[in-house]
Design a protein around this nucleic acid. Structure first.
Lengths: 345, 345
DNA sequence: CTGTTAGCGCATTCAG
DNA sequence: CTGAATGCGCTAACAG
């Protein structure tokens, strides 16, 4: 069904139909005729042809690393909020943490009718930079710092440091034989989550005179399962761990699972203390688990582990506003926004 | 940057460039010249113009009720898998459980360059039916039964019934004073989750001679928070509850939170038994919590509550296959697929 | 192998 | 107020 056919059926020109659709000059009588035909046929104008003509889609594409994540959904909720408030719609593309797919979707959006792109970043490869530099539609990056695009990121280093200080306090037993801190991080190619959080964590420990020994560090995927196995590995090789800090709450959930399953205390009748904070006691020592991200489901069912709350929704809001500023007002001044955090313990 | 400009710069016709791009006949020498110009300019063909011409986007749009859900991400993972295997890409639109937004995104996709739509359904309103009937591109619905489109749904009634039977067993104390079963469901406009699961649950209870009293039933939103408050309300009004069955694992998480927080056992030193299954003991009675969906995070950190595993990934796979059959082979025979379940306890 | 031509469905001049 | 005509960027015939 095209505008032309509608025009024929209504006995008017296609231009008249177009005007009818877009609120241009049209007489009441023709308006009626056109309305009637459109109602009868269920005609739906082709957005794509319109966009080809107008170069305006009122649409933004958002590229995310994965769909099933509380933090990401908070970001997209923020984006959605400002977008829909300003008459835009949002399309999502999930890359499943595959950088190649990320590039593919960025290119897809670039050549598709979207007015702008928001990238919720994980790793920024050379390909990414190339894309950011040469993109012919505006892009804003959320979650990673980059000088090649407007970006909004979180103080991952500061958050890591705060967590490191907390960890240093926790492992101090007072009897002169302090426990050890362990850290489960992610790939170093992720500058925010992989590098900044871990570096911050080390720095926080160090400020309290504690070093993070290499044997007490693991690097894993962004999954619960990975956290589970890393925890087992860590516990197998070290018997003096007092705290396992994880780069994300999801990984922390896997660690908790490992402690629950293989801690030696799962026989009927045994118990796990779930007070304000997750605590587990194998070998007469308490092992504390911490994360980052303030996952609400985890908090609900465990009572909450120490974690960090980032302003994810805020970053989504700011990101969308930034993007719309560029799209609508052609704002040219580069912007970098760094958002703070709140330690939750 | 357009194909025309590239053609000029390379001193060939635009058709030649088009052929170069799409693997048509072209001489080696011109191929070189075109390649050089494209590399230099970073030219990116407009997919939208191509699609306007070819009517083929190799893209499918997926409309989901929310982004942050393990079940939905499993469905989309299944969809992605078959789509990318067959050279398609996937675009997501999240509606935040707002039926109006759902319609808006369906219409967007219809007029946008996608070859087909997958709707992960919650409520099917008259508007939905109207859309399904009149859509000019193929649609498949996942998660709800409908006769107006190809659909893939789960045996929610059977699952509810199995859970009802389990609940009946649990509340039997043996001392003649059986406990009561409570149910936290969702809106009845959701035929699968709201109606089928609850009806099945009642039927399962009934088959064991147990009735679900109105005072022991609540209807809430699809959120943890709603589960939390419903549980408090339930416990405030009834002191003989032995099990709280919830329509989703997310709601169940909220119930667990309520039990942990207000069960009267959160004072330091008190404990919660987290063995194979979540158990909580207020007022000398065990309150068991059950859900649907087999959420992995919940399972990991609680040891697992009784729940139902649906073949979400499978439904995504079948749904995508179905859609591609219609798109590519113009398959006209309507299909309805009902998938089974597995009780996890 | 190549260039010319004619649209895809629509919005926008521009005369009327 | 209206319709005819033009072109958005691209591909598919077609004739060379």
């Amino acid at each position: 069904m095209t505008i032309k056919e509608i025009a024929q059926l209504a006995g008017v020109s296609s231009a008249a139909v177009s005007r009818y659709l877009n609120g241009g000059y049209i007489s009441g009588e023709k308006k009626e005729r056109i309305k009637k035909v459109i109602d009868e046929t269920g005609y739906q104008p082709s957005a794509q042809a319109r966009i080809l003509r107008t170069k305006k889609a009122c649409l933004v594409g958002v590229v995310v690393p994965k769909i099933n994540s509380e933090s990401i959904s908070r970001v997209t909720a923020g984006i959605e909020q400002v977008l829909s408030g300003r008459g835009y719609q949002m399309l999502l593309a999930s890359t499943d943490n595959d950088p190649a797919k990320e590039i593919a979707y960025l290119k897809l959006f670039e050549s598709y009718p979207v007015d702008g792109i928001i990238l919720i970043g994980t790793v920024i490869t050379a390909e990414h930079r190339k894309f950011l530099k040469s993109s012919n539609i505006p892009v804003v990056v959320i979650g990673q710092y980059t000088k090649y695009a407007n970006c909004i990121y979180h103080d991952d280093y500061g958050a890591g440091k705060a967590m490191g200080k907390l960890a240093a306090k926790v492992i101090r037993t007072g009897d002169g034989k302090d426990l050890k801190a362990a850290y489960i991080g992610v790939t170093k190619t992720d500058k925010a989550v992989g590098v900044a959080r871990e570096d911050g964590f080390r720095s926080g420990l160090r400020s309290a005179g504690v070093e993070l020994a290499p044997d007490y560090v693991r690097n894993v995927e962004f999954t619960m399962d990975a956290g589970y196995h890393a925890a087992l590995d860590l516990l197998e090789h070290n018997s003096d761990i007092g705290i396992i800090s994880c780069a994300t709450d999801t990984i922390a959930a896997g660690v908790i699972q490992a402690l629950l399953t293989y801690g030696g205390h799962t026989a009927p009748g045994s118990s796990v203390d779930l007070g304000r904070r997750m605590q587990y006691i194998p070998d007469h020592a308490q092992i504390r688990v911490t994360g980052f991200g303030d996952n609400q489901l985890l908090k609900a069912v465990t009572g909450g582990i120490p974690t960090v709350h980032f302003g994810y929704k805020t970053s989504g809001i700011r990101g969308a506003e930034l993007l719309l500023d560029v799209i609508e007002r052609n704002e040219k001044i580069p912007v970098e926004i760094k958002l703070g955090f709140r330690l939750v313990d």
